[in-house]
Design a protein around this nucleic acid. Structure first.
Lengths: 228, 228
DNA sequence: GAGTGGTCTAGACCACGGA
DNA sequence: CCGTGGTCTAGACCACTCG
């Protein structure tokens, strides 16, 4: 029975799935569907809006709503704090601060963060462990301007956690790739030289001010799962 | 000025970012905010609902709305058809069907798809090219039960595209990892043996019926980007 | 110009779950 | 219990864009 916007969403999905509404077809207007289902137009709108967001429908004013021809499926990734990620797998998280020093950032870094050439940033290397075994090798450029004086003790709290707790929510971008382990990465992660690593790279910003550029290298066996 | 639910969303984000509302704080109720902003409660609800979905707020009936302590950031991935992905990069897409035969699926495959042991599935290998250069090596188990008789000509249309055009929208799961190139992968993709590949694995379903299990191997240089 | 989706309003009922 | 968020309604105005 039709009860609530979600059941309307599912009914529309069913009609699309059964090809009652094939790809490319113009489906009835919100008002028509509202009448058919005996609900208010706002309820239909909520259902169709979610489906459009998911890439199943394409909506245009005046033109109406169509079943997407090539549905660009959307998947959602959770980007947890590493400690949570490790603990969610049932392991104990710990970390070792390997390097923590001011360095002149190379041009690719400064340009990506929109800083002047030769800017002095903090270079921080952290090894994250799960039950004492290497889990991920984090290398990070951090803008010192955002730190209080005196700075936090990053041997006690990981940079990652300090940032989410003390720096405002930000936008940024995230990308993933595969790369072979360098000599240093192999040594730190305890894998063979040239092993395939899963790399996550993030840059984060507080409004216009760059905060950090971080690279996470995960050893073999790491899988990132997404919900579709 | 406050105008529309999105400006309310941004104003709430601003207050969180400026630490007027620090992590863990209970923020005012929808009704209070509606009064403050001079809008209806439904408008505030829309704004706060989006922020809760994004992991910035945590909402509970009766308990109210809190700023998330450890914000699980959500990133959204687009999962396009490969042809679109190649063309979006400004290249011409083509593909070569390398293998197409019925095979007894190994146990890991049948169990993951919920099929009986020893089920006969189609085993399909496709190489996707961008401007004639190897782009991705697709290996796929396909449930023949979903194909019409006679089956489509997969030398003319890629399996990927035939499926999105002819099989109903489905749910599934998707995961990513890194792996070293096997001898066959190295040969097909034209990379050196043991090179780091970026692997995408998807399973898709039509309701209870399994459709396909696909593995995409991308050569070095591939980056997957997500929006945060 | 007119039809469509996008949004807002003011009010209502309800489920949940903390006090 | 009872306040909170989740949802729905009936109606309205508006922005966009197609014909």
């Amino acid at each position: 029975m039709i009860f609530g916007w979600d059941s309307i969403r599912r009914e529309v999905l069913r009609r699309i799935g059964q090809r009652e509404w094939p790809p490319g077809m113009l489906i009835p207007t919100e008002q028509d569907l509202a009448t058919e289902f005996g609900v208010a137009r706002a309820t239909v709108n909520r259902a169709l809006r979610e489906l459009a967001l998911a890439g199943v429908l394409e909506r245009k004013r005046r033109a109406g709503t169509r079943v997407a021809l090539l549905p660009v499926r959307k998947a959602t990734l959770d980007i947890p704090v590493i400690r949570q990620e490790v603990e969610a797998r049932g392991h104990a998280h710990s970390f070792r601060l390997l390097t923590h020093e001011a360095r002149e950032a190379p041009v690719p870094v400064t340009s990506r963060l929109g800083l002047p050439e030769g800017a002095l940033l903090l270079w921080i290397e952290t090894l994250h462990l799960a039950d004492g075994q290497p889990f991920a090798f984090e290398t990070r450029w951090l803008n010192p301007a955002i730190l209080p004086d005196p700075g936090p003790d990053f041997t006690q709290i990981s940079v990652n956690e300090w940032l989410v707790a003390h720096v405002s929510y930000t936008l940024g971008d995230i990308s993933f790739c595969a790369a072979r382990a360098s000599a240093r990465e192999a040594k730190v992660l305890g894998v063979t030289l040239g092993e395939a690593l899963f790399i996550t790279e993030r840059s984060t910003w507080a409004g216009p001010a760059p905060i950090t550029l971080v690279r996470l290298a995960h050893g073999p066996g790491y899988r990132m799962q997404a919900l579709v």
